[in-house]
Design a protein around this nucleic acid. Sequence first.
DNA 1: TCCGATTTGTTCGTATGTATG
DNA 2: GCATACATACGAACAAATCGG
Lengths: 379, 379
Amino acid sequence: MLVMQTKYGIVKQAIKSKILDGTYEPHAKIPSESEMMKQFEVSRHTVRLAIGELVTEGWLYREQGAGTFCADRSKQQLQHNGMPNKNIAIVTTYISDYIFPSIIRGAEAYLSDHGYNVSLFNTNNDHEKEREYLERIITTGFDGAIIEPTKSASANPNINYYLNLERLQIPYIMINAYYDALEPFRVLVDDEQGAFLQTEHLIKQGHRDIIGFFKTDDMQGTLRMKGYLKAHREYKVPITPNHIVTYSTEEKHEKPVKELEALLNQSDAKPTGLVCYNDELAIKLINVLRERNIKIPQDMSIVGFDDSFLTELSEVKLTSVAHPKAELGRAAGKLILDLIENGQGKGYEAAIDSVVFPIKLVTRQSTQAIGEETLEKTK
Amino acid sequence: MLVMQTKYGIVKQAIKSKILDGTYEPHAKIPSESEMMKQFEVSRHTVRLAIGELVTEGWLYREQGAGTFCADRSKQQLQHNGMPNKNIAIVTTYISDYIFPSIIRGAEAYLSDHGYNVSLFNTNNDHEKEREYLERIITTGFDGAIIEPTKSASANPNINYYLNLERLQIPYIMINAYYDALEPFRVLVDDEQGAFLQTEHLIKQGHRDIIGFFKTDDMQGTLRMKGYLKAHREYKVPITPNHIVTYSTEEKHEKPVKELEALLNQSDAKPTGLVCYNDELAIKLINVLRERNIKIPQDMSIVGFDDSFLTELSEVKLTSVAHPKAELGRAAGKLILDLIENGQGKGYEAAIDSVVFPIKLVTRQSTQAIGEETLEKTK
DNA sequence: TCCGATTTGTTCGTATGTATG
DNA sequence: GCATACATACGAACAAATCGG
């Protein structure tokens, strides 16, 4: 649904949300007009306008003297069912992220081969958008959904929608991250282990002052930070607090670069290694280092994450952590089809289970042991 | 219709009668609200109630500032008994191509905002797959399709499917390229002009031996080759046949690199400039040059195509040709909605038209005039 | 059956915002 | 810039239906 800037639109959306997230069950009475007036601090006229439209759209019905009630859409649904065929929704945060297309492609290929259509939605990491799409998944009648959670590190305001999906027996799985409270089926990469490998690699090469850059508004970032810390503890390397740089999606273009520059300018505990949230950031930081004539890997070792095509692009090939991207999408497609075709009711089928993908380090030229001479590159 | 005792019911009935008896013809303006107030001696609110219901029932439509008009009911019947849902298919060749996500995102954002679901299909540039998806689009009942043609340079064995789409009045548009025989609505970048700009730029800087690399299994590549040739002719620069390197999708990882190496090894007519099919190839070729210690731009100028984020990634920032990617997707979304909601039957509506996006050259550091000293980079 | 409180239904008045021509 | 027309919003009053006591 489009963004409603008008008051009645806000009221309308609020009511509709409570229908879709299951707060108002079919035939249950919704609050009276006067209650709504207080609740939203609007006039009765405005409340009536909102309710009126929902009535004409078939969401509610009114009974004079009695109240306004939630309509039972389940019956109309059969008649109304729009998409006759097999449809799966994929909800991601950013379609454009350099890493996502592979995952989407993997899922699309598998699902297409099994006769399903794949619809794409991207939330731009915005909870509002996520809600809008969950509403659409419920109303349009998708057979299942593959969802990358929006802002997975923070509490999710749309929990009720997910619970309603379960109530309506629309299977869904989460990829890359998940909301703890839901305990959904999921397909993940072992992010903590990944960052552990990044950090361990540098520690074993003698690095002690290692900066970690983590995007912490999603679960992946916080897990990777955990892996970074774990490696330090396990190898008894003291942790310097300001060597951990966290940033949010909005800050990704500015903050890490600025923080690195600040850390390079200070004299004590000069960093010799960088652990990056992903390859994109690593490339960005390499550019910063290049401008300061800091040689890689002689003066600074740097490790990326994702093992994307970016690792091969730079002059110095990037050491990175590899995870199977297309396979991850494929596994997600397989899991959701298992759920649709076999398992009704979460937890029923012991045969169906979440998947955690293993991860490994791919060593290239952007890291070396402290003090070591660079080997001449041989092709 | 039953007798309406309420005032708004009377007004409503009166208006409806005049529609049914032909007093108000389709698209004719009906009296304004204030006129109705006088005529029926009721308040404005009452008039609005009456008109409002007629609008939701599809008898009238309102335009702010202009007036209220009689709807054309004859056409709505056809649309209404069809599918209640809004679904658009996007068929691309490669979801994973670094340039595609932006286009898909642009289209997805626009279509989502207008309440449509977007389904994704990728053909891997395989006609078989394309056919499979076209079948699915027809049988599943999509409202429209945005299609990037598979192997657009060669004849298409699935022409009949496209013709059938037209017969079934399922609107479709093509992006990036199109099959000549169909003359579809389309959203394109001016590829020929783009390659003309690439080549012209080098010629004006004194380059005479310019290699052009073109992927010629799609229309874009052949058009770009045309632009390359046109620039040579226009500036009266002789064309060396083996300075044109063509390759297919399958060959893209190997052939251009090998051809470049072969051309560098030969002694006569040493190339001083490279015109690349896209940025990805340009970066790949830059790596080849780097291994041979050929300096860019002193010894070799190189121009990319797409103005993607890759241009900023390399040590030497890449001169490239820019086209608006997300806007192209957006325009495609807009065009298909125009066709769905307004235009039935191709060619009918003169208001709806194909779009060709302008293109421009973005000069960075990977090109310079023959013999010129490199300016020191200043930040 | 009636009463009164509650809830929706109809109607009027008024004001301000915004798009169109 | 101006008048016109629809869009949104507040307030008030009374009518009609429902429901519990």
